Simulated scan of single mutants.
Amino acid sequence: MDYLRWSQRLMYLTNDDIAWYSSIYDNIEIIDSCGEFFTVHLLGTQGGINYNPTLARRQLGFAMKDKPNNTLLEGLFFQEGKDTQGLKARMTHAWKKVHRKGKSELGLKNYIALDPYTSWVKK
């Protein structure tokens, strides 16, 4: 295999050849959601957005068994001074009730993505 170019070597990689997550995250809890929202909010000086920890679980070593619920994929965004829905106040209030999940809720570490999830990603 030493004679192969790097691009050819990549073609032979399998799941077992790739470290999908760092073991330093084995015993942590993740912030799964905040307050009334299914996502986690990131507030900045010019506005706010959210991110979906469900999609980030694979990076922490948890299996992706199924496609995420569409409700969990809800995207939120506001710009400072243009917050007509009052998202800033709702997001700020949501940080007072942080929902965490640990190993007992998330299950065993297993970096494999099952077919329903991979089919969803391909679509």
Rank of each mutant, 00 (worst) to 15 (best):
I18V: 12
L55Y: 06
N27Y: 08
K82H: 11
K65S: 10
P68H: 00
I112K: 14
I30W: 06
T14R: 11
D16P: 00
I30T: 11
A113L: 04
Q85N: 15
P68I: 01
N15D: 15
D66R: 11
K88N: 08
Y21G: 00
I30M: 14
S104A: 14
Q8D: 15
D2Y: 09
T84S: 11
N27G: 07
K88M: 05
H93I: 10
D16V: 04
K122F: 02
K82Y: 10
Y117G: 02
W95H: 15
T54L: 05
V121N: 00
E29N: 15
I31E: 13
V40F: 03
T54D: 04
I112C: 02
L114G: 01
Y51V: 10
Y12F: 04
K65F: 05
G48H: 04
I24H: 05
L55I: 07
D115T: 14
A113V: 11
R58N: 14
I112Q: 12
Y51K: 01
W20Y: 12
E105Q: 15
W20I: 07
G81A: 04
L108D: 15
R9T: 14
D115K: 12
L4K: 13
S33N: 03
T54M: 03
E29V: 08
G35F: 11
I31T: 15
K97H: 12
I31K: 08
I49N: 01
W20M: 09
M1D: 05
D16Q: 07
G86W: 08
N50F: 00
N70R: 02
K96S: 12
Y3E: 10
W120Y: 15
D66G: 05
R100L: 15
H99T: 11
D115I: 10
G75N: 06
K109I: 08
K101M: 08
D2L: 07
L106I: 05
I28R: 09
H93T: 10
C34M: 13
M64K: 01
F62P: 02
V98D: 02
I18H: 03
A56P: 00
